[in-house]
Simulated scan of single mutants.
Amino acid sequence: MMEDKQSAGPCASTTKPVVADVHKKITAAFTAFDYESNNTVDVREIGTIIYSLGCFPTQADLHDIIAEVEEDNTGFIALDKFLPVMTKVLLEHKFPPIPEDQLLQAFEVLDKEKKGYLVPEVLTHYLTQEGELFTQEEMDEMLTAFTDHQKNLVYYKDLISQLAADPGI
Score class of each variant (00 low, 15 high):
141 E>H: 15
16 K>H: 13
108 E>K: 13
24 K>C: 08
127 L>G: 04
162 Q>T: 03
134 F>V: 05
152 N>D: 07
7 S>Y: 15
11 C>R: 05
45 E>W: 07
73 N>F: 03
135 T>K: 02
58 T>L: 01
110 L>N: 08
162 Q>A: 15
48 T>Y: 06
151 K>S: 14
142 M>Q: 10
110 L>M: 14
66 I>M: 03
9 G>M: 11
40 T>D: 05
64 D>G: 01
51 Y>G: 06
159 L>E: 06
10 P>R: 03
169 I>H: 08
60 A>L: 09
149 H>I: 13
86 M>W: 01
59 Q>Y: 04
133 L>E: 13
99 P>L: 07
85 V>M: 01
31 T>I: 10
53 L>T: 05
157 K>W: 09
79 L>H: 01
103 L>H: 07
43 V>Y: 02
13 S>F: 11
160 I>G: 00
86 M>L: 07
108 E>H: 05
40 T>P: 00
16 K>F: 12
119 V>M: 08
42 D>E: 12
131 G>T: 07
63 H>M: 13
152 N>V: 04
13 S>V: 12
104 L>R: 15
27 T>L: 05
143 L>D: 07
106 A>I: 12
19 V>A: 02
18 V>M: 13
112 K>D: 08
22 V>F: 02
114 K>L: 09
146 F>T: 12
3 E>T: 15
61 D>S: 04
63 H>V: 04
86 M>G: 04
83 L>K: 03
50 I>M: 12
110 L>G: 08
42 D>I: 05
104 L>P: 03
11 C>F: 05
47 G>H: 01
27 T>I: 11
46 I>H: 01
37 S>M: 07
4 D>G: 14
77 I>K: 00
162 Q>M: 08
4 D>K: 13
83 L>Q: 05
74 T>M: 01
80 D>F: 07
49 I>F: 04
97 P>E: 13
48 T>A: 09
35 Y>T: 13
82 F>H: 02
133 L>C: 11
127 L>E: 03
74 T>N: 08
7 S>P: 00
72 D>K: 12
160 I>K: 04
155 Y>T: 02
64 D>Q: 11
56 F>K: 10
148 D>K: 09
71 E>Y: 03
33 F>M: 05
24 K>R: 14
61 D>H: 08
137 E>L: 12
67 A>N: 15
104 L>C: 10
67 A>P: 00
157 K>G: 00
96 P>W: 06
111 D>G: 02
128 T>K: 06
11 C>T: 05
156 Y>I: 05
119 V>C: 07
164 A>C: 09
156 Y>K: 01
41 V>W: 05
57 P>E: 01
150 Q>A: 14
26 I>S: 10
31 T>V: 08
166 D>F: 06
117 Y>E: 01
69 V>C: 02
74 T>E: 05
73 N>D: 15
73 N>W: 02
39 N>K: 09
44 R>A: 10
5 K>Y: 15
158 D>I: 11
19 V>E: 09
15 T>C: 08
155 Y>D: 00
157 K>F: 04
125 H>I: 02
27 T>N: 06
3 E>I: 14
83 L>D: 03
67 A>D: 12
116 G>C: 09
163 L>D: 00
32 A>W: 04
119 V>Y: 11
136 Q>F: 11
47 G>M: 01
